[in-house]
């Protein structure tokens, strides 16, 4: 089963179209890099906090989003505090936190399926040289096959574990890749036989 990072809700932020949210995010992040300084970070931080409140997200969601970057942010803080001063170090780290939270706000309030629908409907406006059907096919095949490839990996892992090879990455990867390539050939035969193209 594929689960996305979406958090259920019915706020104005949840209802905004994905393309609007992404455009806003790009503008927001670029502004933070163009207008440097504590003032812009504080304003942006206030905006993000308001966004979290409006969307009904909890501090826990914010913490989970920032957590993977905590170590590297601590390291950057230490390096900046040593090279420049503590105020600038705080600014650089605070800007990262605001950027990551702004992105998390978009991710947490938008279902993956909404994004996929957004991409597919945007494709109908794309110029003729864009291979629309093939992009749509690639996205839907990949979403469909991630759980399958995970199951294959688990099969291979159990088989190699019975041979005492479960710590050997080559012994796991070769069967995984070859089985997936064979599956890909079978799937493309199936697609041909249904006259997809």
């Amino acid at each position: 089963m594929l689960t996305d990072l979406y958090v259920f809700g019915d706020s104005p932020l949840h209802r905004t179209r994905p393309v609007v949210k992404i455009t806003a995010l790009v503008v927001f992040c670029s502004t933070l890099f163009i207008v440097e300084g504590w003032a812009s970070v504080l304003v942006a931080g206030a905006l993000v906090v308001t966004g979290f409140a409006v969307a009904g997200l909890k501090p826990r969601h914010a913490f989970v989003s920032v957590r993977p970057a905590l170590w590297i942010l601590a390291a950057i803080f230490a390096v900046q505090a040593y090279l420049t001063d503590v105020v600038f170090a705080g600014f650089v780290v605070a800007r990262f936190v605001v950027l990551i939270l702004a992105a998390a706000l978009v991710t947490l309030t938008t279902r993956t399926s909404e994004f996929v629908d957004g991409i597919l409907s945007a494709l109908t406006y794309a110029p003729a040289w864009v291979p629309k059907e093939q992009i749509a096919l690639a996205i839907s095949l990949c979403l469909r096959f991630i759980p399958l490839v995970r199951a294959v990996l688990e099969d291979v892992r159990q088989a190699q574990s019975a041979r005492g090879l479960d710590r050997n990455l080559t012994a796991l990867l070769v069967p995984l890749v070859v089985r997936t390539l064979k599956t890909a050939d079978e799937v493309s035969q199936a697609v041909y036989s249904r006259s997809f193209d």
Partner: peptide, 17 residues
């Protein structure tokens, strides 16, 4: 189409890893 399927399934491998 075969190439599209290869692309999609290899993206799935990267995800599964």
């Amino acid at each position: 189409t075969r190439n599209v399927v290869f692309i999609a399934l290899f993206a799935a491998i990267v995800a599964a890893l």
